[in-house]
Design a protein around this nucleic acid. Structure first.
Ligand code: SF4
Ligand code: SF4
Lengths: 137, 137
DNA sequence: CTATAATACCACCCGGAGGTAGCATATGCG
DNA sequence: CGCATATGCTACCTCCGGGTGGTATTATAG
């Protein structure tokens, strides 16, 4: 019932970049501000760059910047890059094939929550998170 | 967003014992019927026995039986024994200390789902699952 | 040219989940 | 009794997420 640490790091980093207003943000800055291991975050941001979520700029004063407008970056986009969306499509008892006619014993109680969570990560964007003006990132 | 394999195994085994009507069910029977590794399930059932969920009987014709009435065995009881409930109390971004006055950026969108899931595993019992009369276990 | 910062490798380490093998122990039944 | 069945327990294995360290390359601002 939790995101991978990598997904947490990715979301927190992107929210920080969004609310801090820093256009080009170095990994060092993010690592210090959010207390995330530098090398680990470096690899993670590189992957986000390869996926097109962020754009990298090398050299002095270089760093990462968010490619698209904030309201176009959905949570599902980030999670998909970092850990994949399999666990959000698959279900609580882990059956591979799953049809409503032959459900698992938990279907009635679970499928509502599953759909709600999936809808949440599909719809919530970085703009929503940045708007929530909480100090804790 | 998924149970541990061990929790899946435990829930499926208990549901099988509930719907099959077998009073004393051997690990071999469960392992064959549900396609769960024999030795692995043996250890798991042993843990459920130590926790009081099931009662064991050794020797020929031995096996496990569910200790309490079905409507008194909640999903949360099983999950607590197998994988613990930490991930259902903690939250999506993994912050240790968490108060409503200083929430994380996802609080508004997430806490509803979290509470709903927690309520589900607290309230749903084996009796509910056995009643759902689905063939797939 | 120099300092800074990303990029690309590498080789490890740790802990936990999932799974396997072997042996000891208890017990019903012929 | 003696054997087959079934639990109980310890040790070991693999895989993966998370994390550290190093080294070298490329790009860029000043
Ligand atoms: S809860 Fe429903 S959708 Fe999920 S695995 Fe079970 S039957 Fe399929
Ligand atoms: S979503 Fe709410 S309850 Fe969960 S960690 Fe964030 S602030 Fe805490």
């Amino acid at each position: 019932m939790r995101l991978f640490k990598s997904s947490e790091y990715a979301i927190r980093s992107l929210v920080y970049m969004a609310v801090s207003g820093i256009e080009v943000c170095s990994v060092k800055t993010l690592s210090d501000a959010l207390d995330i291991p530098y090398k680990f975050l470096g690899r993670l941001m590189s992957r986000l760059g390869a996926a097109g979520i962020v754009t990298s700029q090398q050299g002095k004063l270089g760093g990462y910047s968010i490619t698209r407008p904030l309201h176009e970056v959905h949570l599902a986009d980030i999670i998909d890059v970092v850990e994949g969306l399999e666990s959000y499509d698959r279900c609580i008892l882990g059956f591979e094939t799953c049809d409503d006619k032959n459900p698992c014993p938990l279907h009635d109680q679970w499928s509502g929550h599953k759909d709600g969570i999936r809808e949440m990560i599909d719809n919530v964007t970085l703009a929503d998170l940045a708007r929530s003006d909480c100090k804790r990132i």
